[in-house]
Amino acid sequence: MNVFRLSGDVSHLLAILILLMKIWKTRSCAGISGKSQILFALVYTTRYLDLFTSFISPYNTAMKVFFIASSYATIYLIYLKFKATYDRNHDTFRMEFLVLPVLVLAFVVNHDFTPLEILWTFSIYLESVAILPQLFMVSKTGQAETITSHYLFALGMYRALYIVNWVYRYYFEGFYDLIAIIAGVVQTVLYCDFFYLYVTKVLKGKQLTLPA
């Protein structure tokens, strides 16, 4: 464990807490893409199957349980509890356009052709594009609530910090995992446009609006 990975995990945890707070406090999931949340639940479910087979540390297990539980709780809030506030008309990204290519890629490019490893690879690839429905929805509505932009910033920073962690582990532990690194870079690049808007607008107290 290093400070970059720890701060990445904290940023990830923060993002999830911000999202849950936003939905719970405002009792609304307006502006939130339910499809991205479904994809995240799929990411955690397929990645953390080793929850029962390999124990790394209490921290690792606790975080995995939290990520899985919170992703399903968010889906419950969006599609059941506050479904009247779910903006279905703007959450129109076709998930199958993400899941199918990623599934094929996981079978073609992986470290080990075993079920657990292919599911892990599928999860890594899927996570890199899972935010697209949410970013697509923000571009479609042309704006995002400030709290939602904080959620996206924290979520984007988590994998950006993981990239620094991978550089650190390469130089100090001789460890690297190209699948995770390439997917992580793609994932972070997808946030760049949003990061620019977040820094130039939200941090100056303005509303996050996209040029329609």
């Binding site: 990975r5 995990d9 990830h12 080793d50 390999s54 790394i56 690792n60 975080m63 995995k64 990520f67 470290h111 080990d112 490893e117 892990w120 993981y162 962690n165 460890f175 690297y176 995992d177 995770a180």
Partner: peptide, 10 residues
């Protein structure tokens, strides 16, 4: 598991 596949990260 080879070192690379430790998957010790979240």
């Amino acid at each position: 598991w080879s070192k690379r596949n430790m998957h010790d990260e979240l």
